[in-house]
Simulated scan of single mutants.
Amino acid sequence: MHDLKDKTLPAHSDGLDRLSLTPVPLVPEIRLHLAVDAIVWWARMEAEAGQALTTPFWASAWAGGQGVARYVLDNPEVARGRRVLDLAAGSGLAGIAAGLAGAATVTANDIDPYAIAAVELNARANGVTVTGRQGDLLDGDGGDADLVLAGDVFYSDEMAERVLPFLRRAADRGARVLVGDPGRDYLPTTELTLVATYDAESALTFIDAQLSRINVFQLGG
């Protein structure tokens, strides 16, 4: 599944819900194929498919991912020469930032095959190499990744219960773990050290309109 548009775009589009190659608000150095309104676009996809489809998290630039990407580009030494894992990658924004910062390798992981297709398409649009890896990695520890990037992964209780132990295991084996979050309810309040804060006003989608700051944290040492 390498041609995202051939596989996911509705047969007709009025421009409101079309995927467009767009600069990311907080990280304008990076352009992603995004839906203007991901919910409308998703509804159109489902209507044309005649069945329920997986939520297209990859069709939006989530606030926490924007924060992690901004931090990596502003501090390229954190990624330069490292093996990077972009966890629950969605559009692949954080991993693309790591590639632009000079990472040795970048792997973007997501359970959604459409997300993997989106990652590959977006990486090509930004001139970097990112390897997509589909599947659930949360019972592991990130393998040989030196740097684990987790943008907006604490959006539900169920997700938080699985992600936090994974990130702990990655940190315990020596990986640097960076978490981007705009104030989700399920963000753990301990174990995280704040490393950067960004104004979220210009970066948020309509679903996050009530949020004002995007924080980037490091887990562990």
Rank of each mutant, 00 (worst) to 15 (best):
K7W: 13
T8W: 15
T8M: 14
P10W: 05
A11Y: 02
H12M: 02
G15F: 03
G15D: 03
T22H: 00
V24G: 01
P25H: 06
L26W: 00
I30E: 01
L32W: 03
L34W: 02
W42E: 08
A43E: 15
A43D: 14
E46I: 01
L53D: 01
L53F: 03
T54G: 00
S60W: 03
A63G: 04
A63R: 04
Q66N: 08
V68H: 10
A69W: 12
R70W: 01
V78W: 04
A79E: 06
L85K: 09
L85N: 06
G90A: 04
G90N: 04
L93M: 07
L93N: 08
A98Y: 03
L100A: 00
A101D: 01
T105A: 10
T105M: 01
T105F: 03
D110P: 11
D110R: 06
A115S: 15
I116E: 03
A117R: 09
A118R: 05
V119Q: 04
V119G: 06
V119T: 06
L121D: 12
N122A: 10
A123C: 08
A125Q: 15
T129N: 09
Q134F: 02
L138K: 01
D141N: 13
D144I: 07
L149F: 05
F154P: 08
D157Q: 14
A160H: 06
R162N: 10
R162H: 13
V163I: 15
L164I: 11
L167I: 14
R168P: 10
R168E: 15
R168S: 10
A171Y: 13
D172Y: 07
D172E: 15
R173I: 07
G174R: 06
R176K: 10
L178W: 10
V179T: 09
D181N: 14
D181C: 07
R184H: 13
P188Y: 13
T189N: 04
T190I: 12
L192V: 12
D199S: 09
A200W: 11
E201A: 15
S202F: 08
L204M: 12
L204A: 01
T205I: 03
F206S: 13
I207V: 14
I207N: 11
Q210A: 15
Q210T: 13
L211M: 14
L211Q: 14
L211I: 11
I214N: 05
N215H: 15
V216C: 09
F217P: 07
F217R: 05
L219M: 13
G221V: 07
